[in-house]
Design a protein around this nucleic acid. Structure first.
Lengths: 154, 154
DNA sequence: CTAAATAAATAGGTTGCCTACCTAATCAAA
DNA sequence: TTTGATTAGGTAGGCAACCTATTTATTTAG
C-alpha cells in the first residue's frame, strides 16, 4: 500500500541530486568570483532600499548572504583590491566598516541584477505564470521540510 | 501587463538562492565526507543492479556522480586508506580498476541509502503524493530550462 | 609494428566557505 | 571614572569539493 505512495521517491531524489550538482548562481560572465558578484549585488539591492545614504556593514552582508563575517571580510578585501568596493569607517561607531560600491562595482551589480531578473523571468515564461506560482508554493514547503530535517539531525 | 506576470520572480529567486545555499546531501552522520558517502552509495546501488559480480570502474563512477575521473580517483584513494573500498585490476583489461565495497563501506552505503530513502519518503509525506508528483513535473521543466540557459552561456 | 585512443593516476590549483583567535571600540555597571 | 563584558570586524589557517594539466600504462586500429 505504502509502496505505491513512495514509488516516485527515487525520481525525486535523482532530481534533487541533479539540482544540488548544478548551481544557477555560477551562470556569470565577469572576471570575479560568483560569490563576489553576489556580494556586489547584495550591496546594490540593499543600498537601493535604504533611505540613508550609508553603505552596508559586514554584519549586514554576513546575514544577508548567510555566511560568516570573516568570509565577507575576505571577499571585501579582494573586491577593494580590484576597485569594486570602498571601505570607510562609520562616523558614529568606529568599529563599523561601511562598504559602498565603486562605479565599477555598481556596473557589475547592475548587470548581475539584470541577468538574474532575466533568468527568473525566463523561468516564469518557461513554466507559465500559474505553474511558477505553484512551484513557489511547493518549494516553500520543501524548504521547510529540509530545514526541519536539518534541525533534527543535530 | 508583463509586470504583473513577473511579480513573483524575486520570490522565485530568493527561494532558489536559499536552496542553492542549503544542501540536503550534507545531511550525513558518518566520519567521512559527504561526497565520499555518495560514492559508496553509488557503488552499492549500481552493483546491486549489475548482474555480473564485478565492481565499478572509475569512468562509471565519474559519469554517475558527474565529476571528473581524477576527482573519483582521489576519493577512492582516501576510501581505500580507510578501508571502505578495495581496488583491483580488471582481468580482461589491465587499464581498468575495479572498485568494490568492503563490509565497512557496505555498511555505510546501506545506512546512507536508508537515510536518503527515508528523507525523500518523508518529503512525499510532507507534500502529499499528488503534490510531490507535481513537484517532479515542475522541477523537470526547471532543470530543462537551466540546462538550456547554461548552454547558451557558453 | 606503430600511432592513436583509452583508462586511470598524480599533482597542483581554485572556489567557497568555516573556525580560532585577535584587536579595537562601545556599552553597562560599579 | 574605571573595569569588565559585549560587539564589530579583521587575519590566518584549514577543509571540502571539485577542476585542469599532465603522465603512465594499456588497448585498439590500421
Amino acid at each position: 500500500m505504502d509502496e505505491w505512495k513512495y514509488e516516485n521517491a527515487p525520481q525525486l531524489r535523482d532530481l534533487f541530486s541533479r539540482f544540488a550538482k548544478s548551481d544557477w548562481r555560477k551562470l556569470t560572465r565577469w572576471s570575479i568570483k560568483a560569490s563576489e558578484v553576489r556580494l556586489l549585488l547584495a550591496i546594490k539591492e540593499s543600498h537601493g532600499s535604504c533611505s540613508d545614504a550609508g553603505g552596508m556593514t559586514v554584519s549586514d552582508l554576513s546575514k544577508l548572504l548567510q555566511v560568516t563575517s570573516p568570509t565577507v571580510t575576505q571577499m571585501i578585501n579582494n573586491l577593494i583590491k580590484n576597485d569594486y568596493v570602498i571601505r570607510s569607517i562609520h562616523p558614529g561607531d568606529r568599529r563599523v566598516a561601511e562598504i559602498t560600491l565603486t562605479d565599477k562595482g555598481e556596473q557589475i551589480a547592475q548587470e548581475a541584477g539584470e541577468l538574474f531578473t532575466q533568468l527568473f523571468n525566463g523561468l516564469i515564461d518557461h513554466l507559465g505564470k500559474e505553474q511558477s506560482d505553484q512551484l513557489i508554493a511547493l518549494l516553500e514547503q520543501v524548504f521547510q521540510y529540509f530545514e526541519q530535517v536539518g534541525k533534527e539531525q543535530l
